[in-house]
């Protein structure tokens, strides 16, 4: 079954003189149960693509289907509900609500889904064990380190058992051990629950956990690499492609300055 389809989508920001074409007539498909990576130089339009696909921003042109539903024509109210029920996000900047404790940050979403209280406890226990959150539960976001925030954000995205998870550089601020743990966990739910995952990253190691990588440059599809052999092989393929696209880690770093 097809999980997502992007058809000739463009997204512009601004107008006239300072028009930015963040996405430029891009099309691709994602099947159910895939673990797709999105890579590209900084400013290539990765975040924009994720936003547009995850219904939190509208494309300027084109159509997007998610779980068989055309989301580009849905009214805002239905979109909110759709988002709530089907999508999990791990944002680039975590987006934890500072007024809520970690526990409340997690519970709030379930409250919106009207999940019965006993199931809430179950899921809390499960995720706090899986993502090692037990001691953090009563803390507030400003008392957490970056890595801890990232884990909480991940737990929040997965708590609702979404059909598709969008992750924007989820390992960006994690040390390699936590990053590996999170990625392994994502890979596990991808395998076990058939959760579709779409993850933006600029890091080849992180990307090597995916089944398929979409490379974009200047808002357009540049190339696609599908994992066939071992992870190590895949990793090298990705590095090669990054070099070809001219926006590897180094240039990404330069762009940020």
């Amino acid at each position: 079954m097809r999980m997502a389809e992007v058809k000739q989508v463009s997204k512009n920001f601004g107008a006239r003189q300072n028009l930015v074409r963040a996405l430029n007539n891009i099309s691709f498909k994602i099947e159910r149960g895939e673990f797709v990576g999105v890579m590209g130089p900084s400013g290539a339009g990765k975040t924009t693509l994720l936003n547009v696909m995850s219904t939190i921003d509208q494309p300027t042109m084109g159509r997007i289907y998610l779980a068989g539903q055309e989301i580009t024509t849905l009214p805002e109210r239905d979109l909110a509900e759709f988002r709530r029920n089907n999508i999990g996000f791990i944002f680039q900047d975590f987006n934890l609500l500072p007024a809520l404790s970690v526990r409340e940050n997690l519970v709030m979403i379930l409250s919106m889904l009207r999940l019965p209280a006993d199931q809430v406890e179950q899921r809390l226990a499960y995720f706090s064990e899986r993502l090692n959150l037990a001691e953090l539960m009563s803390r507030y976001p400003n008392e957490l380190s970056m890595g801890q925030k990232q884990r909480v954000a991940a737990a929040r995205a997965l708590m609702t058992r979404p059909q598709i998870v969008f992750a924007d550089e989820p390992t960006g601020s994690l040390d390699s051990k936590s990053a590996t743990e999170l990625l392994q966990y994502l890979a596990t739910i991808n395998l076990e629950d058939e959760t579709t995952i779409m993850m933006v990253t600029h890091d080849a190691f992180t990307a090597s956990y995916c089944n398929r990588i979409i490379f974009i440059k200047d808002g357009a599809l540049y190339a696609e690499v599908v994992r066939s052999g071992s992870r190590r092989q895949f990793f090298h393929q990705i590095i090669d492609m990054q070099a070809a696209i001219g926006g590897g880690n180094l240039s990404d770093f330069k762009n940020r300055l």
Partner: peptide
Amino acid sequence: DYLTMKKLGVAE
């Protein structure tokens, strides 16, 4: 925060 909530599926 409002933005975050919007992303989490709270309608406008």
